[in-house]
Amino acid sequence: IDAAQIVDEALEQGITLFVVNNRLQYETSRDSIPTELLNKWKQHKQELIDFLNQLD
């Protein structure tokens, strides 16, 4: 699994991931984030931050 897949998966569930001051953040209108997704974010945090920083 790679960062792009995780970002896409989040988007499919209505969650936008982004980076502020090198910290992973998210925006969503959902009430809660699925635990499975949160765990993936934690496991791949640095990859996600690097990936999202490249997009900007």
Rank of each mutant, 00 (worst) to 15 (best):
I1P: 09
I1H: 09
I1W: 11
D2T: 15
D2S: 13
D2F: 13
D2M: 13
D2Q: 12
D2H: 12
A3H: 03
A3D: 01
A3L: 12
A3M: 14
A3I: 14
A4R: 14
Q5H: 10
Q5T: 10
I6G: 00
I6M: 12
I6Y: 05
I6L: 12
I6R: 01
V7Q: 02
V7S: 01
V7M: 05
V7N: 03
V7L: 08
D8E: 15
D8R: 15
D8Y: 15
D8Q: 15
E9N: 04
E9A: 05
E9K: 04
E9G: 03
E9Q: 06
A10Y: 03
A10Q: 00
A10R: 01
L11T: 07
L11K: 14
L11H: 09
L11P: 01
E12P: 01
E12F: 08
E12S: 13
E12R: 15
Q13N: 12
Q13L: 14
Q13H: 14
G14H: 05
G14N: 05
G14I: 03
G14T: 02
G14D: 05
I15H: 04
I15G: 01
I15D: 01
I15S: 01
I15M: 02
T16W: 12
L17F: 06
L17T: 00
F18K: 13
V19H: 02
V19Y: 03
V19G: 01
V20N: 07
V20I: 11
V20R: 09
N21H: 08
N21M: 07
N22Q: 06
R23V: 15
R23K: 14
R23N: 15
R23A: 14
L24I: 06
Q25F: 15
Q25D: 06
Q25L: 14
Q25T: 08
Q25K: 11
Q25G: 11
Y26K: 01
Y26V: 06
Y26H: 04
Y26L: 05
E27D: 08
E27P: 02
T28N: 05
T28Q: 03
T28G: 05
T28I: 03
R30G: 07
R30K: 09
R30P: 02
R30E: 05
R30F: 06
D31Q: 12
D31L: 10
D31C: 11
D31H: 09
S32T: 11
S32M: 08
S32G: 07
S32R: 08
I33T: 03
I33L: 06
I33Q: 01
I33Y: 02
I33V: 12
I33D: 02
I33F: 04
P34V: 03
P34T: 05
T35L: 13
T35I: 14
T35R: 11
T35G: 10
E36I: 07
L37K: 02
L37D: 02
L37F: 07
L37G: 00
L37R: 01
L37C: 06
L37M: 08
L37W: 05
L38V: 08
L38I: 10
L38Q: 06
L38D: 02
N39I: 12
N39S: 10
K40I: 08
K40W: 05
K40A: 05
K40H: 05
W41K: 01
K42S: 12
Q43N: 10
H44S: 05
H44F: 14
H44G: 03
H44I: 05
H44L: 06
K45T: 15
K45D: 10
K45A: 15
K45Y: 15
K45P: 04
K45Q: 15
K45M: 15
Q46E: 09
Q46D: 10
Q46S: 07
Q46F: 07
E47C: 09
E47I: 14
L48S: 00
L48F: 02
L48N: 00
D50P: 02
D50T: 09
D50Y: 09
F51W: 09
F51Q: 02
L52D: 00
L52H: 00
L52E: 00
N53L: 13
N53A: 09
N53F: 06
Q54M: 11
Q54D: 09
D56Y: 11
